[in-house]
């Protein structure tokens, strides 16, 4: 069966003005237990690549510049 691309709203939001991933920081990507964050090749900033979040918050708490916000996933908030 062929595959479809289905839209989903993701809980983790990154403030690109604060994010220093383009300077070599990978803290949020490194601490995510589900490995769902990536650095964008286009912007050089971190973003949530997969909607597979446990809303556990190390990415937000450990971000050195406070650039990451974790929202409660829509299905359960």
């Amino acid at each position: 069966m062929p595959l479809a691309a289905t839209q989903t709203s993701v809980p983790v939001v990154v403030d690109n003005d604060k994010c220093i991933a383009d300077k070599g920081c990978t803290v949020c990507v490194d601490v995510c237990p589900l490995d769902v964050l990536r650095i964008s090749e286009m912007t050089g900033k971190a973003y949530m690549a997969y909607d597979e979040c446990w809303y556990c918050m190390p990415c937000a708490c450990d971000c050195p510049t406070g650039a990451v916000t974790v929202n409660i996933p829509y299905l359960l908030k």
Partner: peptide
């Protein structure tokens, strides 16, 4: 119950 695969009691990892 939410149907969200990763909204588990345990760490979903």
């Amino acid at each position: 119950a939410s149907g969200y695969l990763f909204g588990t009691y345990e760490n979903a990892a």
